[in-house]
Simulated assay, not measured.
Amino acid sequence: MSKLFKHINLLALVILVAGVQACTKTEQVDYEKQPANKIAAYRVTNAQQELLGAIDHTNNLITLYIPYYTTLDYLVAAFTLEDMSSTLLDATGNEIDMDAGPAPVAVGADPVKYIVRSKEGVERTYSLVQKILPHPDALVMSYTGATTGVFSRPANGVLNLTGNLESISSNGKFYLTNKATGEVNSDWITITSIKQGAQYAMATKISQNAIAGEYDVKLVHQGRSSNLAPLKLTYQRPLLNALLSSASYAPGDTIEFGPNIGGVFLPVKKAYIKVIRGKITPPAGFPSELYDTPIEMKIVSQRRNELKVIFPQMPAGQYTMNVNTSAPNSEGYTQYTAAGFGFYADYEDATGWGDGNIFCTVSLIRFTVK
Rank of each mutant, 00 (worst) to 15 (best):
L228V: 06
L244F: 10
P287Q: 11
C360T: 13
M202D: 04
D99W: 08
P67Y: 09
E256P: 02
Q130W: 02
G93P: 08
V107N: 02
K3Q: 13
A339P: 11
T181M: 03
L228P: 01
T337E: 04
A18K: 05
F257E: 06
I310E: 15
E123N: 03
G262P: 10
Q49W: 00
D30A: 07
E348W: 04
V362D: 09
V44L: 09
Q28N: 03
T80C: 11
D90M: 06
T192K: 08
T92W: 10
I211K: 13
A155K: 00
T337L: 11
F5W: 12
Q302G: 11
D137L: 04
Y114V: 03
G258Q: 12
V112I: 13
D253R: 08
T368P: 11
L243W: 09
P287D: 09
V17T: 08
A203N: 10
M84W: 07
P134W: 10
F174A: 01
I39L: 11
T181C: 10
K25W: 08
A109S: 15
G197S: 13
N322L: 12
F174R: 10
G101F: 05
G356I: 07
S363I: 04
S363M: 02
V76F: 15
I96C: 11
A12F: 07
T58Y: 03
V129H: 06
S226I: 08
S186Y: 07
I39D: 00
G182I: 10
L176N: 06
L75G: 03
R117L: 04
G356D: 10
D110Y: 07
S225V: 01
Q196L: 09
P267C: 13
D30V: 08
L266Q: 15
Q236P: 00
I310V: 15
G354M: 06
C360W: 05
Y68C: 07
G258T: 15
P67K: 03
Y42K: 00
A316P: 14
I295A: 02
T337N: 07
N164K: 01
V158K: 15
V158E: 05
P315A: 13
L61A: 08
G285E: 09
T45K: 03
A100G: 13
N241Q: 15
I8P: 00
D97Y: 11
V362F: 04
K119G: 07
E348M: 12
L233V: 09
L233G: 10
V14P: 00
I66C: 06
L159P: 06
P315E: 08
A18V: 09
H135F: 14
E123Q: 11
P104K: 07
S169D: 05
S207G: 02
P230K: 07
E348N: 03
I310Y: 10
M84E: 14
E183A: 15
N209C: 00
Q313I: 13
G262N: 08
A18W: 03
Y215T: 03
S288I: 05
C23F: 14
K6N: 06
K279G: 09
G93C: 07
T368I: 14
N9C: 12
L231H: 02
F341T: 04
L266I: 04
L89C: 13
A229E: 15
Y200K: 00
E166Y: 10
K218M: 10
S118Q: 11
G163E: 09
R117P: 12
